[in-house]
Write a protein that binds this DNA or RNA. Structure first.
Lengths: 129, 129
DNA sequence: GCTTGACTTGAACCATGCTTTAAGTGCTAC
DNA sequence: GTAGCACTTAAAGCATGGTTCAAGTCAAGC
């Protein structure tokens, strides 16, 4: 497959695929002409990259995970710590967003006519620096 | 107060305060010497900016909210729609993070020895493009 | 064999939210 | 009156994750 085929198949811009290659997420494989050649394994890697990015891993983290996978595709051990750490980070982020939601809820539902008091309540509730 | 005093009081870098002024979040008020002067109202505005940023509003959104506040400090009406929209966005983000957490949980707890199958399950569960 | 579209490259650009730097000025203590 | 720190400015830099551009190359149809 050529990059345009993969781009269509994954609904992913070709520029993004080139970028992923450039930052070391996927391998360089070329035809004699110099154009990129993609097999099903490469497509799988790209799908994994998308999943990993969607799961909140950075490019660097995704690269580490793919390297661990390349070294031993049948061993999940290398993934356990990063996945658990990421879960911890994701949950912290969820709690943070829930706190933001609480503050907004407070602003929307409290009885004071001015926002100033709501904001001060929000600040008092641990948003201060 | 001068910028250093405010920076200390809010535990916020002076460079950040200058940046907020530059992007129009706070007013320019100067002494004859050209240095910035901050009163309690300015400090309140900065505290609100911090709160707003922490609540996930962008700089542009925060600016809009502050303008609405400046036009009518005792009227919450102008804030209701932005706050509700932001709550909707925050909740969507929370659901997205929860889905990421589910995927990671699946990877950690499923019985297949290889990650490939877990990833494929994750893809099947709506992470595809 | 020529047009045309898909491809190639490296570099520059975009958006967000700051931080850092460089060069110069104000204020205060001594 | 001068040392020295806080302050001033505009501009550049950083981190992230790409997108866009310019200029040239490959390949398939006619």
């Amino acid at each position: 497959m050529r990059i345009g085929d993969v781009a269509n198949r994954l609904s992913m811009p070709a520029s993004t695929i080139r970028y992923y290659e450039k930052v070391g997420l996927i391998e360089r494989q070329r035809r004699v002409s110099g154009r990129r050649e993609f097999d099903d394994q490469a497509v799988f890697a790209l799908e994994f990259v998308r999943l990993s990015q969607a799961a909140g891993f950075t490019i660097a983290e995704t690269r580490s995970l793919l390297q661990a996978y390349a070294e031993n595709p049948t061993e999940k051990g290398a993934w356990i710590d990063p996945a658990q750490n990421k879960r911890t980070a994701i949950r912290a982020k969820i709690r943070e967003l829930e706190r933001m939601d609480d503050i907004l809820s407070q602003i929307l539902t409290c009885r004071c006519p001015s926002l100033t008091d709501c904001v001060k309540k929000g600040m008092a509730n641990g948003m201060g620096g």
